[in-house]
Design a protein around this nucleic acid. Sequence first.
DNA 1: TTTGCTGCAAAGGCTTTGCACGGAT
DNA 2: ATCCGTGCAAAGCCTTTGCAGCAAA
Lengths: 146, 146
Amino acid sequence: MSSFLKSDALIIESLRKKGYRATPQRIAVCRYALQSRDHPTAQRVYDEVRKVHPTVSLATVYKTLQILTEHGLVQELDFPGSQARFDSCMEPHINLVCLRCGSIEDMEDPAAREMVAKFAAKKEFTRTGQRLDIHGICKRCSGRGK
Amino acid sequence: MSSFLKSDALIIESLRKKGYRATPQRIAVCRYALQSRDHPTAQRVYDEVRKVHPTVSLATVYKTLQILTEHGLVQELDFPGSQARFDSCMEPHINLVCLRCGSIEDMEDPAAREMVAKFAAKKEFTRTGQRLDIHGICKRCSGRGK
DNA sequence: TTTGCTGCAAAGGCTTTGCACGGAT
DNA sequence: ATCCGTGCAAAGCCTTTGCAGCAAA
């Protein structure tokens, strides 16, 4: 989580500044999506928000996540055969993607930052973002054998 | 393209060794998918193969690409709002993803290889693969202004 | 001859869209 | 009082699946 929008007040202000209305549903979606560290799916965000706003719709969740994505506050990560995940860390970092349990863990890595930084200077390619995934088996799954 | 399956004979042998029948459609899909450097979509593979096998179906293309993916000969790259792309280079490398024209270019990068290599030694995470994307605007698109 | 494979069509899953009502400003 | 946002349902898009005929081994 890299966002600075940690309070509802800041989220509301940010939404209005961008020309959006600060509805309770939107605020709740933003709060959860921006704070979550486990790269939730839209469905997961929906389930969580519904605990507070039982009538919220999945469509609203998708629309709000799209707003966050368009404004560079979260990144959508698509994977074959599964729902999209949303990452609230926009700084260069590595996603440790476990193929067994599906968990995704952010990992700070100086080498990754340096590697990405090289592209800021390049003339052949104007970098605007990145996605660095390492696929494998996480420690917890390894411990469980097989 | 990192695959060593450069001739039909080798593709046929490889398919049979894995217990698959070497049909003309499969061979054609494998040949194109393994040789292509521009990360084609399934539809693109379909269009290309159809030039030689006009009756081939998209379903067969998808099934064959799935076989290649399962055997680690290509990697499926999913992106928000667009069809999956298939990368025939399985070595650690960087995908330069142009947000304007949609092109994806493989880039060899020692820093990327080193960064990935670190994970081979890690005990906290057993690496089996990776996906390293840099998003931005490619040189050709930059030249075209705006 | 025996299966596995193909092509077609239908189904599936996730995400987006259309629309009328309701709420934020 | 505006008109944007919501929730519902329907549509969309890409991909997968079921199945009968056909072809590879």
